[in-house]
Amino acid sequence: MTALKAHEVARYLARPDLSEGIFLAYGPDGGLVRETAQRLIRHLSGEDPASANVTIFDGPELASDPSQLVLEARSVSLFGGKRIIRVRNATKALVMPLTELRDDPGGTAIVLEADNLTPRDALRSLVEASKLGRALPCYPDSDETLMALMRETFNQAGIRADSDVVPTLREILGNDREVTRRELEKLTLYAASSKALTREDVLLLCADNGALAIDAILDATGGGHAEKLELALNRALAANVNPQQLLAMLTNHFANLRRWRTQVDTGKTARAVLDGQRPKPHFSRIGALEQQLRLWTDPALSQAIERLLQGVSDSRRKPALADAILRRTTLALCMMAATH
């Protein structure tokens, strides 16, 4: 009986112990199930994948005539090469033909893809009890495994990723392995020449909406980074984020900076002040916020807040000019930060 644990699957795929038999990839993560089947088929195909004879069936198609599976497995390949049968959406309707094949697959590798299956499911039980069967559970990745996958991908591509790239990417993506792989491919292609990735690159390429660029706007304005500010503003406004809302959020941000600066002026370190906040700012922003607290004095922050309040008022009186008012106001504050 061979029933692998979820954390053992990746290691097994690197060195499968069978070249024929029944392989069952199952679980709630459809993307990971597909990827597991694909990786297994690539390995089973040998050094010359093009020579492999891969036949693909859909589960419902076979359910209406299960004998097709046996006939295909017993057929002799006209062109030679490894015979592999891939069955998508496999169900317990295939138990009978698989029972006939489990002890004598005739050199054929049968790769099944299925949804989440309970331990008592007939299909899973059959594979786990078979000498030439391997069941590969595919469950949603943990933060640890996904972040390890990201780092491994960047390392293999020779890409230097800033320390906040992986945490930011993990925050944006869900647990679907296929989606994660697709986004990683996009990022490695983007960084193929520069061999470097930043948090701004991740937000630009992988975020689903402009809201995720708001932190970048706040920190670029407060930190005096004009180029980063321009990029973040373009992205947020292109995603139809309300410029009046952005001005209001900037006002709150600078009010927070002034409140924190008051505590720094009493002798506390910027890090101690930030660590004491509830909710605590996201760890990826701590460095930027510390820099802003060093750049801005209380009088300068008071002046910045007045300017923002004026921008909010102007944008309400002239909503058609809200974009221009936002850009003018943030650029002015950015210049103030840069001269401190």
Results as ranks from 00 to 15, higher is better:
R328F: 04
L62H: 01
R42G: 12
T180P: 03
L289N: 00
L250E: 10
L293D: 01
G80I: 07
R328K: 08
A192N: 13
L18F: 02
I41T: 07
L169F: 06
V95L: 11
Y139P: 03
R199S: 12
L231R: 15
N116L: 07
N116P: 01
Q277C: 11
A322S: 12
D48G: 03
H43I: 01
G80P: 03
A304N: 02
G210E: 06
V33G: 03
V111W: 01
V76I: 07
D65S: 15
L40V: 06
P167M: 04
E230H: 01
D141S: 13
R259P: 06
L333N: 09
M147F: 04
I56V: 15
D201M: 07
G287N: 06
S67M: 15
M249N: 05
P243S: 06
T251K: 00
P137A: 15
V202M: 04
D65K: 14
G222V: 10
E152M: 07
Q310N: 13
A114P: 05
V264F: 07
Q303F: 03
S45E: 08
P49A: 07
D265R: 09
C206R: 02
L78A: 10
A226L: 07
T269W: 06
R15M: 04
V179S: 05
L229A: 03
L18K: 00
L44E: 00
I22A: 00
L204T: 14
R182C: 05
A220N: 05
I325L: 13
R316F: 12
A236L: 07
E152L: 09
A248W: 08
A320R: 10
R271S: 10
L187I: 02
E185G: 08
D176C: 13
L71G: 12
L308G: 02
C334G: 08
L101V: 09
A232T: 07
A192H: 12
E128V: 10
K5N: 14
L250N: 14
G210K: 05
A248M: 10
E144Y: 09
D298N: 11
D104E: 15
L71P: 06
Q291A: 09
L247K: 00
L173A: 13
I305F: 11
L123I: 13
N242K: 01
S77R: 06
A196L: 14
L295I: 02
A192Q: 13
E20W: 00
A255E: 06
L4T: 03
G31Q: 10
F254P: 02
A148T: 07
A10F: 05
V54Y: 03
E178G: 09
R74V: 01
L301T: 02
G223A: 14
Q245D: 04
N175F: 01
T330H: 13
S142N: 12
V95D: 13
E185D: 11
Y190L: 14
A157G: 02
A337F: 02
A300W: 00
Q310H: 13
M1E: 04
A320D: 08
I84A: 09
T36V: 11
L18N: 00
D65C: 11
D141Q: 14
N53L: 11
T262E: 11
A338E: 09
V76N: 09
N53G: 09
T2A: 11
I172A: 06
I85Y: 10
S77W: 10
Q38G: 15
L233W: 04
R151E: 14
L308Y: 04
V166K: 00
G210F: 02
A232K: 04
R74H: 11
R42A: 15
P279C: 08
T153Y: 05
G107I: 07
E20N: 06
